[in-house]
Amino acid sequence: MKICTVLKQVPDAEASIRTSGSGVDLAGVTFVMDGMDEYGVEEAIRLREAGHTAEIFTLALGPRRFEEAIRTSLAIGCDRAIHIETDEALDVITQARVLADAVKKEGADLVFVGGKEADWDSSALGPALAEALGWTHLDWTTKFVLTGTTIEATHDTDAGNETVKLSLPAVITTQQGLNEPRYPTLPNIMKAKRKELRKATLADYAAHAPLTKIASEAIQVKARLNKILSGEGPETAKQLITLLRDEAKVI
């Protein structure tokens, strides 16, 4: 079996992002592997540890800086990686089509990808990838068991969760609760440096014209009201409640 873990590198959740002009300024920001993607990498490794013979490869589409996150996945235990390098800001559907072509070329049976990646906060990559591959998919997975080619998995729904059975090939989107990603060990970090990280370009895969183009960007700025209440404690509390209820309408 071949397992593909798709990942992205995104700004650390704690990083303070500055704006410059109408866009964001990413200079000096710490980038990390997307937290949701990480659950997928961990799950793939756990499948192998549970006795499935599988080759696990990382697949990433994005700029050169992604390399660090890719190395992390290799340190966690992926066998090799393919990095389709591009600085172009592709829409999710186009990304999915390129990735799908790569998944097909590598002959993978199972794809893990984060439920919602922190770059554009879209939850579409997984489903779009499944669509492009013509595979079945399950999103927001919190429990995953593979027996032979049958998957029994639990995923979140709006009202709660459900457990379903599906069979390979499949695309699984992952999220918190699925597992606790491990901390890579040092020998594995060392080994990761020697593992294969193959570079590719968009040209290596079936050409897909982007479906969207960024026409302009704007930063949404909300001015604070800077309202300061004065008076005794209990009285200000009442004022605050009135304001929150009647003006802000939050309670």
Binding site: D12, E14, A15, S16, T30, V32, Y183
Partner: peptide, 16 residues
């Protein structure tokens, strides 16, 4: 450990 790696402090608050 993750906090130290990413934010250079164990609390995980931004270096900025």
């Amino acid at each position: 450990f993750r906090n130290l790696e990413r934010t250079s402090n164990p609390w995980g608050i931004a270096q900025a």
